[in-house]
């Protein structure tokens, strides 16, 4: 299992467009990818649940990745977050 924390800098948070991009980015991996904020979790591959988590700008989210490709997924997803969120 791999974990990383990320603070959102996208001004409107993980709303529609960034959420869509994140789902697409996560969906290429076999691993299960979960996101946690304030004790609530959501599956990063599920758009509605991800948006319903309502992660806003300046808030901290924890990503947990578990599966056969977790090593590469953790590196690439963290880079994706820095680039896009």
């Amino acid at each position: 299992m791999k974990k990383f924390e990320y603070i959102i800098t996208e001004p409107v948070g993980i709303h529609a467009r960034p959420a869509g991009m994140l789902v697409k980015a996560a969906s290429v991996y076999k691993s299960s990818i979960m996101i946690e904020k304030d004790g609530k979790t959501a599956d990063v591959k599920r758009l509605m649940a991800l948006m319903a988590l309502g992660v806003k700008c300046d808030e901290k989210a924890t990503f947990t990745i578990e599966g056969t490709d977790e090593d590469i997924a953790v590196v690439e997803l963290e880079a994706f977050c820095k680039e896009n969120l």
């Binding site: 529609a16 789902v23 697409k24 509605m48």
Partner: peptide
Amino acid sequence: AIFDIHQMM
């Protein structure tokens, strides 16, 4: 992009 999101929904 919102219509892309609708497709994903």
